[in-house]
Write a protein that binds this DNA or RNA. Structure first.
Lengths: 223, 223
DNA sequence: GTCTATACAGTGATAGAC
DNA sequence: GTCTATCACTGTATAGAC
């Protein structure tokens, strides 16, 4: 009888480090985890992180790119296809937003998934290394969708467009990183959406209405 | 001729530590600053932070409470007053949201203000001490406004209400912590709103439309 | 090229003297 | 209340083994 050899270190050191970092960072945050914990869990030497990724931040960068890169590429492909199908016509706002939301929400919608929290925090991190990573990963897709939005919502000034795009992005990010406060507020039972498709559609509807609105140069209205 | 004595340490050690921590944390984040830097700037001893606040996290907690506490109290007072004036009638959604947004956006809207970024990051921080602070500071106001929203938007299910409240909160938080990505995207000149009153009104309009929407039990609509 | 052991400066925290 | 000395731990760098 033969026994198959089950190796203890199936993947490369780099891959094991990435896997360990992903689960540990997601659970306790970037600063909450030491390199020693990562290398322990990955069964690698302490110096392995610096050798393969240059630094702890470099490991994080590689981790983010591994997760987000394919996701953003998919979104851009879907947007390209939709625009090609529409020909000269600008895409309806809701179609555009649906493309923007669907891939990441489906991808990250698993019971214990906490990576979105990590991503959300990164977007607010002031340290230059983190800013550099975030910009390089998210800038292209932001530009691409803003351009499309500009065509689909020509009634908005550029300042209005960017402001509302911020609202939209904030709504998405917050919804994905299961609201710490709201989820525990006002209820002790189940709340919020547990079906990703339903969440996507709620988000699409919510933001589409917001973009459609035409508010010329409003001051605060009469009460 | 008399010379007035100008003390080098005008405020108490606690106050000096809080002031130093506020500017330093805002600039470079909680983890980006050591307590040695704080005590240096505050002209205090290294051990002063632990003596007065128990820990670095305790200092942060005190800082947050000093900033946010009065703000939230003001919002609740304004909501109380508006509800009293409305009598039995539920408040219009836009009035409710205007009360929710106005105080923090006005308060934090200064050129170099980076504290909102810090607050936004705290909302996603998984470490138990931070969660405890955030919940204790923001839970009451979340409950208060959710209850009011429930009255003002009776067409929404509880799950929908909470979901959209998350969208709303995310939009506000993101708009306040000047979008890292979007602000530099699609433009090299000025963007976004520089007038807080305009930002408040855009936010009110955007979210009001989103809450008004009645979407019974939608799956994804036909394309 | 990859991995290992080890060294180093800086961190938050604390006990105990003043 | 304040201060010094000290602790365990952090990220990083490097010399040298395979």
């Amino acid at each position: 009888m033969f026994y198959t050899y089950v190796p203890v270190k199936p993947a490369s050191t780099q891959a094991r480090l990435l896997d360990a970092a992903e689960s540990l960072f997601s659970e306790r945050g970037f600063q909450g985890i030491s390199i020693r914990e990562i290398t322990d869990q990955a069964d690698a030497n302490l110096a392995a992180v610096n050798y393969h990724f240059g630094s702890k931040a470099g490991l994080m960068k590689a981790l983010i790119e591994r997760q987000i890169g394919p996701l953003n590429q998919l979104r851009i492909e879907e947007l390209d296809a939709a625009e090609a199908a529409a020909g000269e016509q600008p895409l309806p706002i809701d179609s555009l937003l649906r493309i923007f939301f669907t891939a990441p929400i489906r991808h990250f919608h698993k019971p214990g998934q906490k990576l979105p929290n990590l991503l959300a925090r990164l977007h607010q991190d002031p340290s230059p290394e983190v800013v550099e990573v975030v910009v390089s990963v998210f800038q292209p897709i932001a530009d691409r969708f803003l351009t499309a939005l500009h065509r689909s919502a020509p009634h908005l000034s550029e300042a209005q467009l960017i402001t509302r795009a911020m609202f939209m992005k904030g709504a998405m990010v917050h919804a994905m990183s299961d609201g710490l406060i709201l989820a525990s507020a006002m209820t002790e039972g189940r709340v919020s959406m547990d079906d990703p498709e339903e969440l996507i559609e709620e988000l699409v509807q919510f933001c589409t209405e917001g973009f459609r609105l035409h508010t010329p140069n409003s001051g605060p209205p009469a009460e």
